[in-house]
Simulated assay, not measured.
Amino acid sequence: MSLSVAVAGASGYAGGELLRLLAQHPELEVRTVTAHSNAGQPLLAVHPHLVSFADLVLQPTAPEVLAGHDVVFLALPHGASGALAAQLPDDVLVLDCGADHRLERASDWADYYGGEWAGSWAYGLPELITPGGRRRDELAGARRIAVPGCNVTSITLGLQPGIAAGLIEPVDLVSVLAVGPSGAGRALRANLLASEILGSASAYQVGGVHRHTPEIVQNLRTAGGGEPTISFTPVLVPMSRGILATSTARLAPGADASAVRAAWEAAYAEEPFVHLLPEGAFPASGDATGANTCLVGLAVDERAGRVVAVSAIDNLVKGTAGQAIQAANLALGLPETLALPVNGVAP
């Protein structure tokens, strides 16, 4: 018997991607979709590509609408999930695709988001290296899961093997990301209009102020990095979806190229959704489009004494919706890879 699912914030990009992937899930049945300003409209009015959900109408996002389902996905703006989730029954599996429950330290929330901290939930990055193994070991049976940020996922998966193995210095980390505008959501903003971004690239949230910074540090700390420091700069580029993260780190004393590659190979040899490319090969962002994969290319810049990791993800799949479903599968005792594509879409 299928488990019932509600998707809150279904009219947005993340909500739409959740529905696209859930449509193929044999154990999860979407019964309710909610929205704010679009409530009352047929789902197809905002997502005409989701023809398998032609019978669904967007309902208001309210606890009484979401209660009564086995699984609830929250694809809401930051700051909107905490109070809503607190009103849902404890036995419901709730996955928050926003930032409200990702950070373990109230001080980090105060510094980067402000307002009341909603507390931390089980962190839904199964591949995250932990002192005891991987984060997936802690997700079985969880009923509250925080889905990681998209930029966070690309940087964490690119750098963590070197941190865990002690082959790169955890300070003076640098990451520059080319990102598509869908990561900023569907709300109309002048700087995200096609006429503003086509033929142009622009850095934003420069100088350590991006809200994903403390989450990246938190992950690399978990992987064994002590108190890491990272300079992280996202660059908006004219592609609808995708992230290409180029992350560099100083080689630790005594480390060499062969040890570096061996560490990344060992870290991801058994991972179904993280793939280390052959030596000399590097991913394009489009290689991961539509897939729940992270593709990683690796090099050692001997002259600079730095490791270079280039990681590509689809920000709406491995960066959000696919990662949420992957975590849900683990929490429910289902096969981790169920209903999640590993092949991208090209051209």
Rank of each mutant, 00 (worst) to 15 (best):
A309I: 08
P228G: 11
E302M: 01
R306Y: 05
E227S: 14
A312E: 03
L236N: 07
V300K: 10
G242T: 04
A223E: 09
L236W: 04
I230P: 02
R261T: 10
G305L: 01
E302T: 11
E265R: 13
A259R: 15
A299K: 09
A262G: 08
S240Y: 05
E270S: 15
E271A: 14
L277N: 08
S311E: 03
A263I: 06
W264A: 12
T222G: 01
A309T: 06
G242S: 07
G280M: 07
A288T: 15
R303K: 08
E270R: 13
R241S: 14
A263D: 02
V307A: 02
A284V: 06
A223D: 07
S285F: 01
R250V: 00
W264M: 04
V310F: 02
P228Q: 10
A266G: 07
T246N: 12
A304Y: 04
C294D: 03
G226K: 07
A312V: 05
W264D: 02
G319T: 13
I230H: 05
A291L: 03
A309S: 15
E271I: 03
G224M: 06
S240N: 12
A267R: 09
L276M: 10
V235G: 05
C294G: 13
A223N: 07
E265W: 02
I230K: 04
I230L: 14
R306F: 04
P278M: 12
G319V: 13
G224R: 07
A281W: 11
R303T: 11
R221C: 10
I313N: 08
A291W: 02
V274G: 05
G305S: 03
G305Y: 03
T246K: 12
T320S: 15
E271R: 07
D287P: 00
Y268N: 05
V296N: 00
A284T: 13
N315L: 14
R261I: 09
A249Y: 04
S258T: 12
T233Y: 04
A284P: 00
A223F: 07
F232I: 11
T248K: 10
D287L: 01
G242F: 04
E270I: 00
A262P: 09
S247L: 00
T320P: 03
K318Y: 15
R221I: 02
G225W: 11
T320Q: 11
I313M: 13
R261M: 10
V235W: 05
T289V: 11
D301F: 02
D287T: 00
D256E: 06
R221F: 03
G286C: 08
A291I: 02
A299W: 09
G319E: 11
L298C: 01
S311Q: 05
V237R: 01
E265K: 06
A223Q: 10
A281T: 15
D301A: 04
D256L: 09
A288W: 06
P272M: 09
S285D: 00
